[in-house]
Measured scan of single mutants.
Amino acid sequence: EPELVFKVRVRTKDGRELEIEVSAEDLEKLLEALPDIEEVEIEEVEP
């Protein structure tokens, strides 16, 4: 069974934007590691 992958769009407080694809596990780590995120948009990517 393929692992869930999420497309994550992040905007930081200083206005930088970042778009990455991460696994569910990595997404959890990412959110814990970035306390200064202003906006996060997450969508599931079809395998």
Score class of each variant (00 low, 15 high):
Asp14Lys: 04
Val8Gly: 00
Glu44His: 10
Gly15Pro: 00
Glu32Val: 07
Leu34Cys: 12
Lys29Leu: 07
Glu28Asp: 09
Pro2Lys: 10
Glu25Val: 10
Leu34Pro: 01
Glu38Pro: 03
Leu4Arg: 15
Glu19Leu: 13
Glu43Cys: 12
Ser23Leu: 06
Leu27Thr: 00
Glu25Cys: 09
Arg11Val: 10
Lys13His: 06
Leu18Asn: 01
Val45Glu: 04
Glu39His: 13
Ile42Arg: 03
Glu1Lys: 15
Glu25Gln: 10
Leu27Ser: 00
Ile37Gly: 07
Leu34Tyr: 12
Lys7Asp: 00
Glu19Cys: 15
Glu17Phe: 14
Ala24Glu: 05
Ile37Tyr: 14
Val40Pro: 02
Asp26Glu: 10
Arg9Phe: 04
Pro47Met: 11
Glu28Leu: 12
Pro2Cys: 13
Glu43Phe: 15
Arg9Gly: 00
Leu30Ile: 07
Ile37Asp: 06
Glu3Met: 13
Ser23Arg: 11
Leu27Asn: 00
Asp26Thr: 05
Val10Asn: 00
Pro2Ala: 11
Glu39Ile: 15
Glu41Gly: 04
Lys7Trp: 06
Asp26Pro: 00
Glu43Ser: 11
Glu19Ile: 14
Ser23Asn: 10
Leu4Val: 11
Asp26His: 07
Thr12Arg: 05
Arg9Val: 08
Ala33Leu: 10
Glu44Ser: 11
Ile37Glu: 04
Leu31Val: 02
Asp36Met: 05
Asp26Cys: 06
Glu3Pro: 14
Ser23Val: 04
Lys13Trp: 05
Ile42Lys: 03
Glu25Pro: 08
Val40His: 03
Glu41Thr: 14
Ile37Gln: 03
Lys13Ala: 06
Glu28Asn: 08
Val40Arg: 03
Arg16Thr: 08
Glu32Arg: 10
Glu44Ile: 15
Asp36Thr: 05
Glu32His: 09
Leu30Arg: 01
Glu21Phe: 15
Ser23Ile: 05
Leu30Asn: 01
Pro35Asn: 14
Val5Glu: 01
Lys29Met: 07
Val8Lys: 00
Val10Thr: 01
Glu41Asn: 09
Phe6Leu: 07
Glu1Phe: 12
Glu19Phe: 15
Val5Gly: 03
Lys29Arg: 09
Val45Ser: 07
Glu19Met: 12
Lys7Gly: 00
Val5Tyr: 13
Lys29Asp: 04
Gly15Tyr: 01
Arg9Tyr: 06
Glu21Gln: 11
Lys13Glu: 04
Glu28Phe: 10
Pro2His: 10
Ile37Leu: 08
Ala24Gln: 07
Glu1Ser: 14
Ile42Ser: 03
Glu3Tyr: 12
Val8Asn: 00
Leu34Arg: 04
Glu19Gln: 09
Lys13Asn: 03
Arg9Asn: 03
Arg11Ala: 02
Ser23Phe: 06
Leu30Gln: 01
Thr12Lys: 04
Leu4Gln: 09
Glu19Asp: 05
Glu41Ser: 12
Glu32Ala: 13
Leu4Gly: 05
Arg16Phe: 06
Glu1Ala: 11
Glu21Ser: 10
Leu34Gly: 03
Glu17Arg: 08
Lys13Tyr: 03
Gly15Ile: 00
Arg11Phe: 07
Glu3Thr: 13
Glu1Gln: 14
Glu32Ile: 08
Val8Tyr: 02
Lys13Cys: 14
Leu4Trp: 06
Glu28Gln: 14
Asp14Thr: 04
Val10Ser: 00
Glu43Leu: 15
Glu41Ala: 07
Val5Gln: 05
Glu1Pro: 12
Glu3Val: 14
Glu32Met: 11
Lys7Asn: 03
Ala24Cys: 08
Asp14Ala: 04
Pro2Tyr: 13
Leu31Cys: 09
Ser23Trp: 10
Ile20Trp: 14
Ala33Ser: 14
Glu44Leu: 15
Ile42Met: 05
Val22Thr: 02
Arg9Ile: 08
Glu46Ser: 13
Arg16Glu: 05
Ile42Phe: 07
Leu34Ser: 06
Phe6Gly: 00
Asp14Arg: 02
Glu46Leu: 13
Ile20Arg: 02
Ile20Ala: 03
Ile20Tyr: 15
Glu39Gly: 10
Lys7Pro: 00
Ala33Phe: 12
Pro2Arg: 13
Val40Cys: 12
Leu31Glu: 01
Pro47Trp: 10
Pro2Ser: 09
Asp14Ile: 02
Pro2Leu: 09
Glu43Asn: 10
Glu44Cys: 12
Ala24Asn: 03
Lys7Thr: 04
Glu46Gly: 11
Ile20Phe: 15
Asp26Ala: 09
Val22Ile: 08
Ala24Asp: 01
Lys13Asp: 03
Leu4Pro: 09
Glu46Asn: 11
Phe6Arg: 02
Val5His: 08
Glu3Ala: 13
Val5Cys: 11
Ser23Gln: 04
Glu39Thr: 13
Val45Pro: 04
Val40Met: 11
Arg16Lys: 10
Thr12Ile: 04
Val40Phe: 11
Val5Thr: 10
Glu41Leu: 13
Ile42Trp: 10
Val22Asn: 00
Val5Trp: 14
Glu46Met: 11
Glu38Val: 13
Val8Leu: 06
Glu1Trp: 11
Leu30Trp: 09
Ile37Phe: 13
Leu18Trp: 15
Ala33Met: 13
Val10Glu: 00
Val8Met: 02
Glu46Val: 13
Lys29Gln: 06
Lys7Val: 07
Glu25Asn: 12
Lys29Asn: 05
Phe6Lys: 03
Glu3Phe: 11
Lys29Phe: 07
Asp26Ile: 04
Asp36Leu: 04
Asp26Asn: 08
Asp26Gln: 11
Leu31His: 02
Leu4Ile: 11
Glu46Gln: 14
Lys29Ala: 11
Glu46Ala: 11
Thr12Asp: 04
Ile20Glu: 01
Val8Ser: 00
Glu32Leu: 12
Glu3Lys: 14
Gly15Phe: 01
Lys7Arg: 12
Arg9Pro: 01
Glu17Lys: 08
Arg16Tyr: 06
Pro35Thr: 14
Asp36Phe: 07
Glu28Met: 13
Glu17Gln: 10
Leu31Lys: 04
Glu38Lys: 05
Val8Cys: 05
Val45Ile: 11
Ala33Gln: 11
Ala24Ser: 05
Pro2Val: 10
Val22Ala: 05
Val10Ile: 13
Lys13Gly: 03
Asp26Lys: 06
Lys7His: 07
Leu34Thr: 04
Val8Ile: 09
Leu30Glu: 01
Ala24Met: 12
Leu4His: 08
Glu3Ile: 13
Glu32Thr: 09
Thr12Phe: 15
Glu41Cys: 12
Val22Ser: 02
Val45Ala: 07
Val8Gln: 00
Arg16Pro: 01
Glu21Cys: 13
Thr12Trp: 15
Glu43Trp: 15
Arg11Ser: 03
Asp14Trp: 04
Glu17Met: 13
Pro47Tyr: 09
Leu18Ala: 03
Arg9Met: 03
Glu44Asn: 08
Leu30Met: 06
Glu25Leu: 11
Pro35Cys: 12
Leu18Glu: 03
Val40Gln: 02
Asp14Val: 01
Glu39Asn: 10
Asp26Tyr: 07
Val5Phe: 13
